[in-house]
Simulated scan of single mutants.
Amino acid sequence: MKGLLQNTWKHRAHVVMCLPAVLVLLFFNYVPMAGLVLAFKKFDYKLGIWGSPFNGLDNFKFLLASKNAFINMTTNTIKYYLIFIIVGTFLNVALAIAIDQLVFKRAGKIMQSIMIIPVFISYAAVQFIVYAYLNTEGGMINNLFGTSIRWYSEAGLWTIILTIVKMWNSVGYGSVLYMSALAGIDSEIYEAAEIDGADKWQQIINITLPSLVPMITIILLLSVGGIMRSDTGLFYQVTRNSGTLYSSTQVIDSYVLNAIFKNSNFGFVAATTFFQSIVGVVLIIGANKIVRKVAPENSLF
């Protein structure tokens, strides 16, 4: 203990600098974990969190009460996760490499600034942009092609629509992360490959992509923990919470949000988030074990 205090005092400048981040992490990530007790209680406003009576696993039973709805929203959650991860990773890497290969580097910097703009646009605003395109009566797509498709009633079309919206919103920022990894590749490696007669495609395949594997692996591992979580704004607001689209667009998070608005069952909400967290922890540990066996240098722990 004495040694710990001495080291803390010795590095007090560093401790002071990291203290704000530690406090934010503590109050926003760890203190709220006490609220997980709600998952096992029947919440009563008058009694508060700690005074509300325990009801065992009833909140989890409520989550599983409608078997068909639970299977549908779980399937949708996993389906969209896989689509977004596969398509998003491909586009992020492809765009990062394309910009990195630009001859005019200043143009690349301008493109980076433009590409991250969608990240800062709220889905509350995005829903109106999407509606302007898909509105049955005066939508741009129906007017342009002379069709009368009722977009907000055709559930089968929304897998593609939501994927396009998600990619538009996130690919620009995601590619910037990979560009930071590309900036760390030693230029002498490319020069040596060029001297040996390798063209641009050969350099990308044999140098660039292998150099990005550690970054791709880490991002995929971190994302596995959120496999049961979805972007609520995307699935609730962009779809305008249309009931006719639920078979294709309802995920666990949008289901929970609807439950809050309908009956304010916070015990159910806590049970659902607890379920999502447990699944996420199990999956990320399992995925990390697999990576550690295949490529130990790319594992998280």
Results as ranks from 00 to 15, higher is better:
26 L>G: 06
32 P>I: 09
34 A>N: 11
35 G>A: 13
43 F>H: 12
50 W>R: 09
65 A>M: 13
70 F>C: 09
71 I>D: 08
72 N>H: 10
73 M>I: 13
76 N>P: 06
85 I>C: 08
93 V>G: 05
93 V>K: 08
97 I>F: 01
98 A>E: 02
101 Q>H: 08
101 Q>P: 04
102 L>M: 11
104 F>H: 14
107 A>W: 10
113 S>N: 14
122 S>D: 02
132 A>H: 08
135 N>V: 02
136 T>R: 13
139 G>S: 00
142 N>I: 00
143 N>F: 03
145 F>H: 03
147 T>A: 03
153 S>I: 02
159 T>L: 10
165 V>M: 04
165 V>T: 01
169 N>F: 09
172 G>R: 02
173 Y>F: 15
173 Y>I: 04
174 G>V: 07
175 S>Q: 06
192 A>I: 11
199 D>R: 10
205 I>D: 10
211 S>M: 11
214 P>W: 10
220 L>I: 06
220 L>K: 05
221 L>H: 05
228 M>K: 00
231 D>S: 01
237 Q>Y: 02
243 G>Q: 14
249 T>E: 04
251 V>T: 09
256 V>Y: 05
271 A>F: 02
271 A>Q: 07
283 L>P: 05
284 I>V: 15
288 N>M: 11
289 K>F: 15
292 R>P: 04
294 V>Q: 09
296 P>V: 03
296 P>N: 03
300 L>T: 10
